[in-house]
């Protein structure tokens, strides 16, 4: 059909393949390729493929080693379901039963779920990881790393903590959901509960804007009494 238009479209294949177009242009190009005569679409797709294969080889020039912690953070959430469920018990929630409303992963609720249902087809973790809007935020915490993967669509998140130093004797780590009305306790963890890699499911993120951690004396506090160690924005 209109030769100049087809030529223009083919000219865009290279920047398109390199993600050097705006989102609006990308959508427009996708539309035009879908509507183009099949030889034009095929030529466009061939060019895109060749550019991407070329840049895949070029990536040898930018290779860089990520930190060793990243491996644990990436692999932990996709481990088989059972270990995640067991480790979920490490945060003690019963202490702040009234305050725990914002985070509904009560140990009791979890236990009931296990007894009454056959193994769930899709866990909260799987649903979060499969959500199109899944986001990841990482912050250093107690010589280790806290990473939360969350989905606003699913209203849930998966927290992975790796290589944390245990809290000092007589203190606990306490997790807080920060919302418009300030922090709400989301559980505590003492030295005995700390393992090299821990996964935690968060349901009902609600209007929380961040997840935060403090060290608290004894078995925890109703409100933070020490400076925040790490804050993971949920945005």
């Amino acid at each position: 059909m209109s030769e100049p238009t087809d030529f223009e479209l083919l000219e865009l294949a290279t920047p398109y393949a390199m993600h050097a177009v705006s989102d609006a242009e990308r959508a427009e190009i996708d539309r035009r390729v879908a509507a183009a005569p099949s030889p034009v679409a095929a030529a466009f797709n061939d060019e895109v493929r060749a550019v991407r294969e070329t840049m895949a080889i070029v990536s040898a020039a930018t290779a860089a080693e990520p930190s060793a912690q990243l491996r644990g953070a990436i692999l932990a959430p996709i481990e088989p379901v059972e270990p995640i469920a067991i480790r979920q018990m490490s945060w003690r929630r019963a202490v702040f039963a009234s305050a725990a409303a914002a985070v509904v992963v009560g140990a009791a609720a979890f236990g009931v779920g296990v007894l009454m249902r056959p193994p769930a087809k899709s866990t909260v973790a799987e649903q979060v990881l499969a959500a199109p809007d899944v986001r990841t935020v990482s912050r250093p915490l107690a010589n280790g790393t806290a990473t939360v993967m969350f989905s606003r669509d699913r209203n849930a998140g998966v927290l992975v903590m790796s290589n944390l130093s245990p809290p000092s004797p007589g203190t606990v780590y306490q997790m807080w959901m920060i919302g418009a009305n300030g922090p709400t306790s989301a559980g505590t963890m003492n030295a005995a509960a700390v393992t090299p890699s821990m996964t935690e499911t968060l349901t009902n993120l609600g209007a929380s804007t961040a997840l935060a951690f403090t060290v608290e004396p004894g078995t925890g506090s109703p409100q933070p009494t020490t400076p925040i160690l790490a804050e993971l924005p949920l945005s």
Binding site: A64, E65, L70, L129, V134, T136, S138
Partner: peptide, 27 residues
């Protein structure tokens, strides 16, 4: 990992952001 993280790091230039993005990629 070295290819993915290296490319992301080359674009973002911040190790923290690059690790987050690398996690999203593998997810």
């Amino acid at each position: 990992k070295t290819r993915v993280y290296g490319l992301v790091m080359r674009v973002l230039r911040d190790p923290g952001y690059s690790e987050e993005t690398t996690q999203e990629v593998y997810l």
